[in-house]
Amino acid sequence: MLTKTQVTGEVVTVYLKGELDHHTARRMREAIDAAVELNMPSLLVLDFSEVGFMDSSGIGLVMGRYRILSKTGAQLHIQGLSPAIYKIMRLAGMERLATLQSKA
């Protein structure tokens, strides 16, 4: 399993696991979209604590989810970012689309 979903009220948290690249992005994307469609959250939290690697495929994934959420005015929060993943998120300007939080 590359993802695990938790629903608390209007908040959907999806825990991603493994390496996020062009090969794995599709399955992660489908799981997130299914959870969003089913629960229609006002806040989607993507947890990267167990993502060991991410390239720009992860940026495409975040941008795509932001587009979907913005149709209903829902917010996006990204947490558990390792220094390497945080670096790519910042390079791509993702802090303009979502709140970013590093790994504790």
């Binding site: 992005a25 940026i59 495409g60 390079l91």
Partner: peptide
């Protein structure tokens, strides 16, 4: 198109 961010070369450069 699709969900490619178009950042491949920017990331490589950086």
């Amino acid at each position: 198109g699709g969900e490619r961010a178009g950042l491949g070369f920017a990331v490589m450069e950086s």
